[in-house]
């Protein structure tokens, strides 16, 4: 099934894809992901709460959802693992500041495939990222229902 991807989010994916196109083998890609994670603003201790925790196993993942102007949803996230934090940085670039319908129309798995990070969004519970996408989509659905 081909998902409908709207302008802004797709443009961001294009930007990410061109950044990743400059990278060579998987080692460079992983190093870049780790760097993206390092540049992500960490959540505060209070934001790293159980309520904001997304279920993972090996590493911990937190997500904060904040409604923004014009019905968009803002997201901030964090993890105690570097690679996961880098992948979160990518997810946030794609999802944060978008309208719920844009979020729900977006196929994150296909996007990660395009970036050559296919394994990152596996449905394994050890990887909190998959659950993070689910939580983002749930929050978007709830916001759409309220609108």
């Amino acid at each position: 099934m081909r998902m409908l991807m709207t302008g802004a989010i797709l443009a961001e994916l294009d930007d990410l894809a061109s950044e990743f196109d400059l990278l060579g083998d998987w080692e460079e890609r992983y190093r870049y992901v780790i760097d993206l994670g390092r540049s992500l603003a960490p959540l505060s201790e209070t934001e790293r709460s159980d309520a904001n925790k997304v279920r993972g196993c090996a590493s911990q993942v937190w997500l904060v959802t904040e409604p923004g102007p014009g019905g968009v949803l803002g997201f901030r996230g964090d993890s105690d693992a570097h690679i996961v934090r880098g992948l979160i940085a990518i997810l946030l670039r794609l999802y944060s500041g978008r309208r719920p319908d844009e979020i729900l129309a977006f196929d994150a798995r296909a996007a990660f495939d395009r970036l050559g990070l296919k394994a990152a969004l596996s449905a394994q519970r050890s990887n909190g990222l998959f659950s993070m996408v689910e939580r983002i989509r749930r929050d978007a659905e709830a916001a759409r229902a309220r609108a």
């Binding site: 080692e27 992983y30 090996a58 693992a81 690679i83 996961v84």
Partner: peptide, 13 residues
């Protein structure tokens, strides 16, 4: 400086 999860992911590669 690394999480165990990071190490396992890199080792898998």
């Amino acid at each position: 400086g690394a999480h165990a999860h990071d190490i396992a992911q890199i080792l898998d590669r």
